[in-house]
Amino acid sequence: MYLALKDLGSLFDSRGIQDDLSFASVSDQANEAQPKGLFISFNGTDGELSEAISNGAIAAIWNINYDLPKYTPNQFPVFFTNDPAAAIVTILKRYIEKLNGETDKIMEITNFKFSNKKLLNKNNETYDIAVMLNEITSKNKPEGRE
């Protein structure tokens, strides 16, 4: 089960289309392939969003303290936050809630990939989706069953 655009709609102020899109990846790395990706910008540098879009990003989380580049397409979904690190934690929690109760052993999941070391040290959350899924399934197992 993929993270969807509508999952973010109630969490952030946004602009652009609010269609029924799903994200195969969530990343802060503009320079890496992210097909059907949600790009999270930490530094709002010029060209960063353009590079993410050219590498497959279909939406972005953008720090409201930085100007959105003028080249950003009007229909491109952008969600605004004043703290991208906190936004990631919020997104992860929403995604865990969405997956809670899923019992399919084989399912397509959103790939979360972050390189910002400051972010990893700031939050006590795990970003390994396999660990998160294991925690969810172990919470939902009846006592005495493996």
Rank of each mutant, 00 (worst) to 15 (best):
Glu146Met: 15
Ser27Phe: 12
Val131Lys: 12
Val131Met: 15
Gly16Gln: 01
Ala57Asn: 02
Arg94Val: 07
Phe79Ser: 01
Asp20Cys: 05
Asn111Thr: 11
Tyr71His: 05
Ser41Thr: 05
Glu146Val: 15
Ser50Thr: 14
Tyr127Cys: 09
Glu32Ile: 15
Leu92Val: 03
Lys141Glu: 05
Ile40Leu: 14
Asn31Ser: 12
Lys6Pro: 03
Ser54Asn: 10
Thr126Ser: 08
Lys105Glu: 15
Gly101Ala: 08
Pro77Met: 05
Ala57Cys: 05
Asp104Phe: 09
Thr81Glu: 09
Asn140Thr: 05
Ala33Trp: 10
Thr81Asn: 06
Glu97Asn: 10
Leu8Pro: 02
Tyr2His: 10
Glu125Asn: 10
Asp67Gln: 09
Asn123Phe: 10
Asn82Thr: 12
Leu119Glu: 02
Gln29Trp: 13
Glu102Asp: 13
Phe76Leu: 08
Phe23Ile: 12
Ile17Lys: 10
Tyr95Phe: 08
Glu146Asp: 10
Leu119Asn: 00
Phe114Ile: 15
Lys6Glu: 11
Trp62Ile: 02
Arg15Lys: 07
Glu146Phe: 15
Glu143Asn: 12
Met107Glu: 13
Thr103Glu: 12
Phe42Tyr: 04
Ile109Met: 00
Gly9Ala: 11
Leu3Met: 06
Tyr2Thr: 03
Asn134Pro: 09
Phe23Ala: 03
Arg145Phe: 15
Gly44Val: 02
Ile96Tyr: 14
Pro84Gln: 02
Glu125Ile: 13
Leu133His: 04
Ser115Met: 07
Met132Lys: 01
Gly101His: 06
Gly101Glu: 13
Glu143Pro: 13
Gly37His: 02
Ala60Ser: 01
Thr45Gly: 09
Pro142Ile: 12
Ser50Gln: 11
Ile17Ser: 11
Ala52Tyr: 03
Leu133Ile: 08
Arg15Asp: 13
Tyr66Cys: 04
Glu146Gln: 15
Glu32Thr: 11
Leu21Ser: 06
Arg145Lys: 14
Asp19Lys: 04
Lys141Leu: 15
Thr45Asn: 11
Tyr71Asn: 05
Asn134Tyr: 01
Asn55Gln: 09
Ile53Ser: 08
Ala33Met: 11
Ala86Ser: 12
Asn134Phe: 01
Glu146Ala: 15
Phe112Lys: 02
Gln29Leu: 14
Phe112His: 00
Tyr66Ala: 01
Gly44Leu: 07
Phe112Glu: 00
Phe76Glu: 08
Arg94Asp: 03
Ala33Thr: 13
Phe42Ser: 12
Phe23Tyr: 01
Phe39Glu: 03
Val89Ser: 04
Leu3Ile: 10
Leu11His: 00
Thr103Leu: 11
Glu125Phe: 15
Leu68Ile: 04
Ser27Glu: 06
Leu120Gly: 06
Tyr127Leu: 14
Thr126Cys: 06
Gln29Val: 10
Glu48Arg: 09
Lys118Gly: 11
Leu133Cys: 04
Lys118Leu: 14
Tyr71Arg: 03
Thr110Lys: 04
Ser27Met: 07
Met1Gly: 09
